Amino acid sequence: MQTHVSGKSAILALVIVAVFLVSWELFLRHKGVVADFDDGPELWAHVRDQAYQPSDKAVVFIGSSRIKYDLDIETWESLTHTHAVQLAMVASSPRHILTNLADDPKFKGRLVVDVTEVLFFNRMRGNDYPDAGISYYKGITPAQRASFYLDRHIENRLAFLNEGHYAINAMLGEMHIPDRPMVYPFLDFPMGFDITRYNRQNVMNDDFIADTNQHNQVKAIWALLRMDPTPPTTGKPLDTIMNSVVRDVAKIKARGGDVVFTRTPSNGFFLDAEHHMYPREAYWDRLLKETGCQGFYYADDPVTAKLVCPELSHLTPKDAVTYTTALVSLLKQNKALGFQ
């Protein structure tokens, strides 16, 4: 008798859970939420494998979040007939990923390094996500690979699996409870701002693009980060960073690879702060001179110079197509990365 009751209880519990999950998914879909992918070490490691494609078949991109939004992968692949391998990471410096590729004797490909100065030249921050991705990639097991391939087929069908917005910690962070003194607040990005596709391209949705209130929400986060008292890197620490990048670039070129640098658009007070803290001649120009690489700074091209980021730091999907088209044109005009 007790077994019979326990069986009924188990069935009832399963029904309740199923009803809850279906209701939650339908509620999110009604709000316009779409299923996407968690941009964690698992997805990064999956794409990292693609860096070994023949150099005439693929180009690898590393950087911070801007190149994840501003490079439209479909446009790139249509215009260049090469695969775009997106290895950039949000809120991160690409230098550790550059070193990882440079120290990998199997990587002999073409590389685009996007520079967001406040992260690229930062000695203190911006390495947690790259280090986690690299560590996961080096130690990945067959079971983890199998789990990823099974999970991806579920993840892109169910919106509530979005860990960045609907995990418990993420939802608690969005409760807008006043912070205690000296506690750094949760960076509450709108749901439509950071949609991640399977190819790791990030996009804004139409709702975010049309809503200036959401733009201002993200601008407020940038204004908060602008208050960071950490001074820009100068002197010997900057020399150390430059020497590290020069060394890594030289390793890749010595194996037959190639490297170019890009600087994607930013606007408003964000750009003003970047110009003030990281003057172009002391950072960007020096970087190109010491590495001997070509560089493509958005402000130097009349097409990309006019692009406006709705929240000051990232392009809309439509403008990402414009930027990518212009970038491909510049690469071909300058015969960079072997493009003609």
Rank of each mutant, 00 (worst) to 15 (best):
T3I: 15
H4Q: 14
V5F: 13
S6H: 14
A10T: 14
I11T: 14
V15Y: 06
I16H: 10
V19D: 12
V19A: 15
V22T: 15
E25S: 09
L28I: 09
R29T: 08
G32A: 11
A35E: 10
D38F: 09
G40R: 13
G40M: 09
L43N: 01
V47K: 03
V47P: 01
R48Y: 14
R48C: 12
Q50P: 03
S55F: 04
K57A: 01
A58R: 01
I62A: 03
G63S: 06
S65H: 09
I67K: 00
Y69P: 00
D70G: 02
D70A: 04
T75A: 04
E77L: 00
Q86G: 03
Q86Y: 03
Q86L: 07
A91N: 11
D103H: 12
R110C: 00
V113D: 04
D114G: 01
R123W: 09
R123H: 11
R123Y: 07
G126V: 05
G126R: 06
D131G: 06
F148I: 05
L150D: 11
I154V: 15
L158R: 10
L158W: 14
L158I: 15
F160E: 05
G164R: 15
G164H: 13
H165T: 12
A170P: 02
A170L: 01
M175S: 07
H176N: 13
M182T: 13
P185K: 10
P185D: 04
F186V: 06
L187S: 07
F189M: 11
P190T: 09
G192V: 06
G192Y: 05
I195R: 15
R197Y: 01
Y198E: 12
R200E: 00
Q201N: 01
I209L: 08
D211E: 08
I221W: 03
W222A: 15
A223D: 11
T233E: 12
T240F: 10
I241G: 04
I241V: 09
M242N: 09
V245T: 07
R247G: 13
D248Q: 12
D248Y: 13
D248R: 10
A254E: 14
G257F: 03
D258H: 05
F261H: 03
P279F: 09
D285G: 07
K289H: 13
G292N: 07
F296S: 02
D301C: 01
L307Q: 02
C309V: 07
C309R: 02
S313E: 11
K318Q: 12
A320L: 06
T322E: 07
Y323P: 00
A326P: 08
L327F: 02
Q333S: 14
N334A: 11
N334Y: 05
